[in-house]
Computed example of a mutant assay.
Amino acid sequence: MTDQTIASHASLPKPLPKPAKGIWRQGWQRFTKSRTGMLGLVLVMLVVATAVIGPFLAPFDAHDQSPMLDPGAKAPPSWTHWLGTDRMGYDVLSRLIYGAPTALAVGLGAMSIASVIGVLVGGFAGYRGGTTDEVLMRFTDFFLVIPMFVVILAVVRLLGVAIVNTPFESVPYLNLGVIILLIGVFSWAPIARMTRAEFLRLKNQEFVEAARCIGATSGDILFRHILPNALPSLVVIVALGIGGAVLAEAMIGFLGFGDPAAVSWGQLLYFNYEALKVAPWASLSPGLAIFITVLGFNLLADGLTDAFNPRAKV
């Protein structure tokens, strides 16, 4: 190779380095390698598909009691009724399908409320620090020790009595909305603690100091610089909380405090547990649906934990 050829090769521009992978892209690559996380994602997508498409494919309406006439109540599974009928003559499969939207509405609605409150309280406490941090964290600790179920059951029972013969009695799904609101209000404390920890870790990072130097406002620093970098850790705890909210609503429904206008898996257990010996399919089916839903979100949270662990290897 001549000196002229070497010089021509030396003058060629060097290839640009590959851009660094974003935290979300790295996390997704790790997540796809997690069998636990992928199994959780499949289960969650199954529940979501059932909630979205299922009501259009259900063999019977949720409140259709025509199976009471043929084949009758507590009928075993058959080709017409794949999961049999319950003690009131409803088709178990149809009621199971119509219960999926209720479960997701509770989980997503309650955790949306909890996320907004938790991020605001935890983010403000972590960013300001000092006395503000101390006061807000003691307020958060107070919500951690409140007996959530006792308060929810008491409020729902009192509400049911207070709205009798009032215009609120005709409001559709009022009890369900109150349950979602209460679960969200009493579930924000763990999110606030996680948000505070992330904001304490991130507020002194170099990119935050650079934003301050160029005159960024506190709002811009909080919501454009710190919060996006704290979201991966928050997504994990929110996914875990969705499963917890679904389980909480199922327990409330099983105790007989659910919304009678809504089809809930917990209420299906409540209405059919006495017939467990003669018609076990009516109780085991909603119990299995609750188990699959909660397991799916828990496995999804485990996979997200592994995916966004900064010490994990790509």
Rank of each mutant, 00 (worst) to 15 (best):
K33H: 15
K313D: 03
F297W: 11
K21W: 11
P67D: 10
G160S: 14
P232F: 04
G266R: 10
Q267M: 15
M38D: 08
P167W: 10
G37W: 07
V171F: 12
G287W: 12
P59Y: 11
T2G: 14
P286N: 14
V314F: 05
R224G: 04
D86I: 01
A216R: 09
A125L: 08
G109K: 03
L295V: 15
Q65G: 07
N165D: 15
T36F: 03
W188F: 05
V92G: 04
K74E: 09
L284I: 15
G122T: 07
F271V: 12
G84L: 05
F31H: 13
D70T: 12
E209N: 13
S112C: 10
N175F: 06
V48F: 14
V156L: 15
T305W: 01
L247R: 12
G54E: 11
E249Y: 04
D61H: 13
S66H: 05
P101A: 06
R95W: 01
T80N: 13
G99S: 04
I221Y: 00
S112V: 08
P310N: 04
D3Y: 00
G109L: 04
P59T: 12
V278I: 15
I146R: 09
A125I: 06
G123S: 03
L240K: 04
T80Q: 14
G118F: 02
P190E: 11
A105K: 05
A75R: 06
L269C: 11
L284P: 02
V314H: 02
K14D: 08
I179T: 05
R25W: 09
S283F: 08
L255T: 13
L231C: 02
R196G: 00
K14G: 10
W265M: 10
V246K: 04
V246A: 09
I113A: 02
V238E: 03
M45K: 06
L269E: 06
A75F: 05
G241H: 01
V208F: 03
H225Q: 11
A248P: 01
G129W: 04
S218D: 15
V119N: 02
I226G: 02
G184A: 04
G37M: 13
H63P: 01
K21C: 04
Y270L: 07
R95C: 00
R138N: 07
L108N: 03
G266F: 04
F297M: 13
F124S: 07
P228Y: 01
L234M: 04
L136A: 07
F60Q: 11
A301Y: 03
T140Q: 08
A250P: 06
F143T: 08
Y98T: 05
P172C: 05
V156Q: 08
V185E: 00
